[in-house]
Amino acid sequence: MTLTHLNARGEAHMVDVADKQETRREARARGSVHMQAATLALLSEGGLPKGDVLATARIAGIQAAKRTHELIPLCHALALSKVTIEFTLDEAESCVHVEAFCRLNGRTGVEMEALTAVSVACLTLYDMCKAVDKGMTIDGVRLEEKRGGRSGDWSREPMPEPAAATSRDPSAEAEKPAEAEKSAAISPTSGVKIQFLAELRERFETAECVLEWARLPSRDIAGVKLALINQDPKYKALLNQRVLCARNEAMSQNEAAVAPGDEIAFFPPVTGG
């Protein structure tokens, strides 16, 4: 294993990426800010003295992603094509989950941008709420997945694999798919539970099924759809843009990451009221 930011003399240097191929690079990072239940309630009711906390933290995270190269010494300046920041208020855990997603077509990965975006969004949440709660903690800032580039795709396994997580050595990367298959075979939660609701349930004559993790061509909603279509062409109807999807009861798009044990529901546009 080598550290790419050290040269042959062990000195820090910026990696020359001029000759690398431009490819689609994506990264997703997460973190959480734990707080008192009362602070979370104030946040959701918009009752905090500094105003709209989540909107401000979102802009802060996006701005931070764009300025990562100014903060992290050996990072390249990147023209990001997409940065999104999402917040989930978790009353059970009394925290705000922060998720950042970065994308570009380029020569270097965007993991540092996603991690910086999450960190600064968390710091901004702290700043906006500290008047009422100084004991908040920022926890679990981590990379969830990355795609593209020489070291290929990576996503966090449910079981932590710290050695593989930081490896850039191609031989170590090559062992990963086999390991992933092995853990998929022995884990009871290795499948993804699929539900079809309303008209889709009737059309497919299926209420629910389980997809084996190993069948997913990519670890996101788009991958779940492709795996279902590989199983039976009738599921091509899921590619219709009107079909909606929820992952663990939250609305999700094609690019949303999927983990073993997730519950994915597909349904038509809603018609209540």
């Binding site: 609701l197 309303a198 008209e199 009737e202 009107r242 929820a246 349904f267 038509p268 546009p269 809603v270 018609t271 209540g272 009221g273």
Partner: peptide, 30 residues
């Protein structure tokens, strides 16, 4: 709340008539 309920809350209506049953389509006006 009614406007958001009609476009964001997961409910689906199936109407029953003498000539058969069908799932209601979403409306552009909603």
């Amino acid at each position: 709340i009614m406007d958001y309920l009609k476009t964001r809350a997961p409910f689906w209506k199936k109407e029953h008539t003498d000539s058969g049953s069908y799932w209601v389509s979403e409306r552009q006006s909603d």
